[in-house]
Design a protein around this nucleic acid. Structure first.
Length: 492
RNA sequence: CGGGAUGUAGCGUAGCCCGGUUAUCGCGCCUGGUUUGGGACCAGGAGGUCGCAAGUUCGAAUCUUGCCAUCCCGACCA
């Protein structure tokens, strides 16, 4: 069929691309590396946003908005941050076009409209935000500042992939300022837990909470915490990061405050973010060869109702019944769509909504009306059963919860099976090539060894898990002593 | 930015090697009708800068050169 997608086994990357395009989440655009997020994909993002935003507000944060452009001089201020992002920055150098005198109908950059100072299009907003916080903070009474912004950022990446890595992407970035180091660290950890809770409870994607090695740390951070997820092809995906920034940005932007005891000190900071990349992770974590499998808590459409009828008379009777059902389901807080379009037949609709990952499908025909039942099909297992119309919404709620639970458990079982300890180098390499997933191995703690392992195997240290058990061992590569295992994986 | 592949209608394609009327077929789309419990059928219809540009030729989707774009694999990264 024209809508069929490549199987995972045949070509995992192609499967992923097919899925995104054919399920209507996004489309390629005419701008290299940039995609169009289509209504269905954006609805999914909005559901994620809504929940995250709620969680941010419950933890005391407020939303604000800062400019897209960052004057180059501000961008440079925090050296490590600037250096880290420099090679992926898009720069605005001019502010005007004019007609090309040599080529009618064409425009050229007006050389006279050169900016005195170039503007960097934000790859992240620490610089512009800390330059602003400077004006907001004098006293400990001004702290903490707990702000989040929903924004787009641009990072000029070499190679892009739909949702996972695009030149422009949507995200949220939290930027907080605190009077004490401990408070900033607590904030950093708190937000890591918020992300993990969101991933597990809403996306149904299990994640490992950990801390990054120095090599993988965010440019400008003292410590980077992360949540790492595992995709079905055994590659890891960094799903969110929360950074303890120490006083780095406060020093770069000279943000000091007077404490209760009248001492002057630099402000402590955190920043944290998740992006539309989460959509890519969500897709890769649960979906199958028939299309998306979306967790009910985030699915734009939770229930689709498909009528099956012969003739107008039956259709009218079904319509009548469905109107009641739709009211009932909506009243129960379920997002439901009645697809009675007559330009495609039931079989086509079944396949289409499976492609789109709608968790529950209800089919209702004349036969069902007589028996006072509907056919209910769940997307995750493809199981179908006849269910009484009476008290349907309660049944559907249970079913949605069960699907949410099942796909989380399935993903967790897969993830857990793919955390494998390795003690010998040969074993380590072989596991990466054959079993894939996370490999738990000892590491001597040096950046050089990490780099070497990356060169040899393309695997990186995804994180040092929080609450890691301490055990003595020897580094998988160098044989030097180590006190704990870290998680290696090939990653997106 | 290196390596590989591919560009023909909205999508998928035939034709290209060996140049020759009006560019093939399927899906989708439009109109009318019959249908509807797993991707319907009949009849009619619309839809094309053959990626772009030069060149060779009486003649180019087809040959030559250059360019562009996209995808995949790397390096870089969320």
């Amino acid at each position: 069929m024209s809508k069929a997608i490549t199987s995972r086994q045949q070509d995992y990357s192609q499967w992923y691309n097919d899925l995104i395009i054919k399920s209507g989440l996004a489309d390629y655009s005419s701008v290299r590396g940039c995609m169009v997020i289509k209504p269905y994909g954006f609805a999914l993002w909005e559901n994620m946003q809504r929940q995250l935003d709620k969680m941010f507000k419950e933890t005391g944060h407020q939303n604000a908005y800062f400019p897209l452009f960052v004057p180059k001089s501000l961008f440079e201020a925090e050296e490590k941050n600037a250096e880290g992002f420099a090679k992926e920055c898009a720069i605005v150098t001019h502010y005007r076009l004019k007609n090309d005198p040599d080529n009618k109908g064409k425009l050229i950059v007006d050389p006279e409209a050169r900016l005195e100072e170039e503007l960097v299009i934000r790859p992240t907003s620490e610089a512009i935000i800390w330059n602003t916080y400077k004006n907001w903070i004098q006293s400990y009474r001004d702290l903490p500042i707990l702000i989040n912004q929903w924004a787009n950022v641009v990072r000029w990446e070499m190679r892009t992939r739909l949702f996972l890595r695009t030149t422009e992407f949507l995200w949220q970035e939290g930027h907080t300022a605190h009077a004490t180091q401990q408070e900033a660290i607590d904030e950093t950890i708190q937000m890591l837990h918020v992300y993990a809770d969101f991933a597990e409870q809403y996306m149904a994607v299990p994640v490992i909470k950990g801390v990054k090695t120095e090599n993988e740390r965010f440019a400008g951070a003292v410590e980077t915490y992360c949540i790492e997820a595992l995709m079905q092809d055994g590659k890891a995906l960094q799903a969110g990061t929360s950074h303890f920034l120490g006083q780095n940005f406060a020093k770069a932007f000279d943000v000091k405050f007077t404490d209760k005891d009248n001492t002057l000190d630099y402000v402590w900071a955190s920043s944290w973010g998740v992006s539309t990349r989460l959509i890519g992770g969500l897709v890769m974590a649960h979906s199958d060869d028939d299309g998306l499998v979306l967790p009910p808590k985030l699915a734009p459409i939770q229930v689709v109702i498909v009528p099956i009828y012969k003739g107008e008379e039956q259709k009218l009777k079904i319509d009548e019944k469905v109107q009641v059902l739709v009211q009932e389901l909506k009243a129960a807080g379920i997002s439901v769509k009645y697809d009675d379009s007559d330009n495609s037949r039931p079989g086509w609709k079944f396949a289409e909504y499976e492609m789109k990952g709608v968790p529950v499908r209800i089919a209702i025909g004349a036969r069902d009306l007589e028996n006072n039942v509907v056919e209910v099909a769940r997307r995750d297992t493809k199981e179908k059963q006849s269910i009484s119309i009476d008290g349907l919404s309660a049944t559907i709620i249970r079913l949605l919860n069960d699907i949410q639970d099942k796909i989380y458990k399935k993903a967790t079982a897969y993830r857990d099976e793919h955390i494998t300890p390795a003690n010998q180098w040969d074993e380590f390499v072989q596991l990466l090539d054959t079993k894939t997933g996370f490999i738990a191995a000892h590491w001597d703690g040096t950046g050089e060894t990490e780099e070497k392992i990356k060169e040899l195997t393309k695997a990186t240290i995804r994180c040092i898990p929080l609450n890691n058990t301490m055990e003595n061992g020897t580094c998988i590569l160098t044989g030097k002593p180590s006190t704990q295992r870290v998680l290696f994986a090939r990653a997106y």
